[in-house]
Simulated scan of single mutants.
Amino acid sequence: MSIESVRPPTDIPFPEALAMLRAAAEESRLRILALLAEGELSVSDLTDILGQSQPRISRHLKLLVEAGLVERHREGAWAFFRLREGGFGLVEPLIAGLERGRPPLSEDRARLEAVRAQRAEAAQSFFARLAPKWDRLRSLHAPEATVEAAVVDLLGARPIQNLVDLGTGTGRMLTLLAPHAARATGLDSSHAMLSVARANLERAGLSRVDLRQGDIHAPPFGRGSFDLVVVHQVLHYLDDPARALREACRLVAPGGRLLVVDFAPHEIEALRETQAHRRLGFAAEQIANWLEEAGLGPVAHRDIAPADGTEHPLTVTLWLAEDRRVRSDAQPPERAVA
């Protein structure tokens, strides 16, 4: 989502508006807001970019959070900051109109690019260690491009307001779908994988996608928060996939959809050892029953056969389900857990 897409909120209480403007009316904090307009950053990132001490940066961020301009979320031992949705609208014209071609903003932007390059290099180094295993798995099923084309085709042209990718991994589904969503969020339990996803999304020009660290069995989001929930190649790693799918269904808004992508049943036992798979695929009936028990009705089911000549072919299966409730008949979404 671009900064231009944010619209100022209406009816802001005068004390809150004054607090927002006072918080922004300081050089370092205004520079921080300009940087966060480019995407989420950590205290360490901002320390490197602005050349200020960590306590000083933390103090500025605390004031911006208290004023409702910035929000904070934890990722293991790390904390990331981003512009707060809604609260930013009041100072949007100011941030959008800043001249970025001259110091200090031009220098900040150059250092931001350097920080992102370092982050991308570290993420690539981590992923390079995993690549042989991933390449081996990809060789057993249809090309990723074929699967992704099927995902796009199955979802169709229906608008996406709020998207969440549970178990986002490298962020590939976000890279594919976030450009078509008003807002996109990725959840993963691994800080290292989120670092890979963050680097991949920034490389794709999608730096304002929200990434969260959390458990897919207990996602930190309110009921009915998303009109599209994606669970892509995750269930076969889980001890309790049924519970994870119930939690995914809980997040679907009235009239919203859930997309599940995983393997059909197979007998490649070696994947338990080489890829840490807990389940050897899922029957269509099994997934359909879990979805129905959670209150979602099936919409579509599609099998993608493996490419010819693979040693141990795997079939990739897509399931698309929909919440049949009418939006006006449902309770408003619960607030997400911070």
Score class of each variant (00 low, 15 high):
L94E: 05
L61E: 08
P103V: 04
D45H: 12
R100P: 12
E99N: 11
L46A: 06
P93I: 13
L41R: 15
E99F: 10
L21P: 06
A37P: 09
P104T: 07
R102E: 13
G87D: 13
A79I: 06
E71A: 04
V43Y: 02
L69E: 01
A37M: 04
T47W: 00
G76T: 09
R29Y: 05
R59Q: 13
A25R: 10
L50R: 10
R56G: 00
A67Q: 03
T47I: 00
V91C: 06
P103M: 12
G87T: 12
P55N: 15
F88H: 02
F81I: 02
F88E: 07
L21E: 13
I57F: 01
G51Q: 03
L105I: 06
Q54A: 14
E40I: 00
R100S: 04
Q52E: 14
A96C: 03
A17I: 00
R31I: 04
L94I: 11
L33V: 05
G101F: 02
A77L: 12
V65I: 15
S53H: 10
L36D: 01
H73I: 01
E107S: 10
A67I: 00
S28T: 11
G39K: 10
L41V: 06
R100L: 14
Q54N: 05
E75Y: 03
L46Q: 10
F14E: 11
I12W: 11
L94M: 10
A34F: 00
G97D: 14
L46G: 11
E26N: 12
S44L: 11
P13H: 06
H60N: 14
P93S: 13
A67N: 00
A96Q: 14
A34L: 00
E16F: 07
R31V: 10
L30R: 14
L69N: 08
L90E: 02
R22P: 01
L36S: 04
E107F: 03
S42K: 12
S58C: 01
S28R: 15
R74A: 15
E66H: 12
A24H: 05
L69W: 02
S28C: 08
R102I: 14
L83N: 11
L69Q: 02
E92S: 07
V91W: 08
G97E: 12
L105Q: 06
E40C: 00
L18S: 12
K62D: 08
G68R: 08
E27S: 14
F81S: 09
G76F: 09
E75Q: 15
L21M: 15
R100T: 14
A79P: 05
G51K: 04
Q52V: 05
I12H: 06
L21I: 14
A37W: 01
L33N: 03
F88N: 04
G101E: 15
L21A: 14
A37Y: 04
P13W: 01
R82D: 07
G68Q: 05
R31Q: 15
R102N: 03
E16I: 07
L18I: 12
W78Y: 11
E71K: 01
L36G: 01
G89Q: 09
T47F: 03
R31L: 08
G68H: 07
R82Q: 12
Q54H: 04
R22Q: 09
I12A: 10
S28K: 08
R82G: 07
E27K: 11
I57V: 13
P104V: 00
H60V: 02
A79M: 13
L36Y: 00
S28M: 10
E99Q: 08
A77I: 06
D45A: 12
S58N: 08
I95P: 06
S42L: 09
